[in-house]
Write a protein that binds this DNA or RNA. Structure first.
Length: 131
RNA sequence: UGACCAGUCUGAACAAUCGCGUGAUAUCAGGCCGCAAGGUAUUAUCAUGAGGAAAGUCCGGGCUUCACAGGGCAAGGAUAACGGAUAACGUCCGCCGGAGGCGACUCCCGGGAAAGUGCAACAGAAAAUAACCGCUGCUUUGCAGUAAGGAUGAAAAGGCGAGGUAAGAGCUCACCUCUCCCGUGGUAACACGGGAGGAUGUGUAAACCCUAUCCGAAGCAACACCUGUAUGUAAAGGUUUGCCCGACCGCAGUUUAACUGAACAACAGGUGGCAAGCACAAAAACCACGUGCUGAGCCGAGUGGCAACAUUCGGCAAAGAUAGAUGAUUGUUCAAGACAGAACCCGGCUUACAGGAUUGGUCAUACU
């Protein structure tokens, strides 16, 4: 399960401007339909659709150590979410950490992410495994 | 024992579960992306994976690109006792002078103010050809002499004592200070001793400036080099014939859409296009493998040196990403975890930092 990062700056801009948005206590999530989803699917050896993930942590949040810790936690949270739930694919997902995320446990962030994704209707209920 | 001074080392540990980068071995897949060379995947095991400051980007180098390829001058910048170390330094070591501390020791101290120009607020009579008050003399509403005393100030015209005088004054003398000369010691800065001079005007050079020495510019999401393994690939391109032009290649993006997606397509850049034949040199561009991460390297012992350091021998070699790998959760322990994340690489400096360990030394007190 690899994370496909968003590297283009314009995609972040589009996600902020046009994407669906949900604000939680510690994070903000933007979701936008990925126009390149089918091309990426062809490139993907497994022939599955994928979500491209963008992680954003403001410099206001803290120093480099704190920021990279938050990025790791966010990445881990998303990986766990894809594993345990049935997440819709073919989207651009931008996760922005709020300043309170610096002092919070990773489980809280995961719960935040789950709440946000289900509110944006990114999680298909049933099927897979509901644990 | 207490209070200090100067270093050196260290920068929580363990277990379980999940997870990541790189490398190796095996395994899986022949699809997708690209004009093409070519690229890329699944899973398992093993190995390995941030700092003393990785930080600030303040100095000095290496490396690379560009420029000059010789010498001089000017401008600009940096440095500033002396000797050494070093690839180099504004760093380090030793030492000198000054300042501070009882001391161990410390210091954002260190050319020139008699080359010149400038500045010195407020206060004060006066801030540099000193006469306001005071003191003394005389021919006394004034003139002359005088820096001993006096407000102030960061700084007031060498200090202090004696002689001297009308009163005073380096005017004279002793001591101190300063400058110069000689001798001794030291590689030298300088120190000590002796002699001479009469002594010029306070501070400021982080004001301009003067003296000496050094310096080409730029740079990392970059750039370059080496080798082409079938002389690596090469769409649009060359050339011949025919036909056709707001064409074509390439591409962010937009619309529709959910698939072999389709349509339209800006800027930069490149090329006239299409069909057939022929030929493929070079360059730009790109691709693969490799290199720049073995380096002024680290550790231990010996030798030389007061030391910085040099040198000999032996051993070690295991971060390398490109939106960026070291993490999360739970539990246990303790001294309860600070500052903080490699990004081309080194040597320094500076700044931040919970603590812990340890070496040498000083002072005080007590005891012998």
């Amino acid at each position: 399960m690899r994370i496909h990062p968003i590297s283009e700056n314009h995609l972040y801009k589009k996600a902020y401007d046009h994407g669906k948005k949900y604000v939680c206590q510690h994070i903000v999530v933007y979701v936008l339909t990925d126009y390149h989803a089918s091309r990426l699917q062809r490139e993907n050896p497994l022939k599955q659709k994928i979500n491209r993930i963008g992680l954003a942590v403001s410099k206001k949040t803290g120093g480099a150590v704190i920021r990279s810790r938050i990025r790791r936690i966010l990445r881990a949270a998303y990986t766990r979410l894809e594993k345990e739930c049935n997440v819709r694919k073919g989207y651009l997902v931008v996760i922005v950490a709020r300043s309170s995320a610096a002092s919070v446990k990773s489980t809280d962030i995961y719960e935040n992410l789950y709440e946000a994704m289900s509110n944006i209707n990114m999680i298909e209920t049933g099927e897979k495994n509901a644990q």
